[in-house]
Amino acid sequence: MLAGHRTWIFENKPVIISTGTVGGPFEADGSIPEDFDLLHSDMWIGQDSFEKAHKILLDEACQKAIEKAGVQKEQIQFFLAGDLINQITPTSFSASQLGAPYLGLFSACSTSMEGLALSALIVNSKGANYVLTGASSHNAAVEKQFRYPTEYGGQKPATSQWTVTGGGVALLSNQGDGPKVTSATIGKIVDMGMSDPFNMGGAMAPAAVDTIEAHFKERGVDATYYDLIITGDLAHVGREVAIDLFKKHGTTINEDQFVDCGLTIYREGQPVLAGASGAACSAVVAYGHFLNRMKKGELNRILVVATGALLSPLSSQQKETIPCIAHAVSIENGGA
């Protein structure tokens, strides 16, 4: 059901019956290693290219989710996923292995929540019983695509972010146990004229604020309704800007309940500068860490707002600004 202009309320409450999260060596060394189903000690994962390793991350995340739900691979009716590599090939190769009908998504680092919102819509409208959705990214493959060669010695500014190596997927169904997807707000492109690809947090913050405020208004709730409002990868710079923007707009939001996946995944002392980013960032932290906390009962209602900077290496070399987006999905325990 549409509420307002861009919020869907899912009255049939699709259930996240299981999740699968996979990480790399840098994530294993981070602050939430116990929230991953599988961690690799090798960036290559025994493959001969980083792109192949990238595919394996998503493959394994899908396998874990399917295995944990106790369903068969053949029961998956749709697969909605994406990544950051040219023409999202790692995801397509992974989908070929899975064999399910596939919708490829590109929404940069907000792919995870775009996928979850669309999957929830499919399940809610009885378009399918089992929908698998997720996102993945591989640090070295993404750096190669968007920035410099991995071993190139370029000094990064303090505002730049570290791409997560990992894959996170969620399996949605219309029955079963688990946290429920209750609503989703689809983001609009917000372009504040920022053009520095090394400060994506600062560029994405207005998009996150726009979507969160629209969500509150259209769903008729305020920040106190949620235990946590989790942004995807705003990192230090973006989070700070977003908090100031909320203050400026007069939206009350408690700083303690406003957390960021990009600041959750790594520990202090890891050389990540402003924080983490990448399509896998919101996917692994939301589906791993925060859903685990929901299952333990520590959290009851969360709003995950995955933020994406929809730039390409070409557009940034042509000095174009960065179009940004944020998609919000609310996940709640119980029936309410």
């Binding site: 303090a158 505002t159 504040m192 004229g193 920022m194 400060n199 600062g202 913050a205 207005p206 230090h236 710079v237 700070e240 800007v241 100031d244 923007l245 400026k248 402003a274």
Partner: peptide, 12 residues
């Protein structure tokens, strides 16, 4: 206005 707002920060 936003550029002013976001770029006048220590970390930037």
């Amino acid at each position: 206005e936003y550029q002013q707002f976001a770029n006048n920060r220590e970390v930037v």
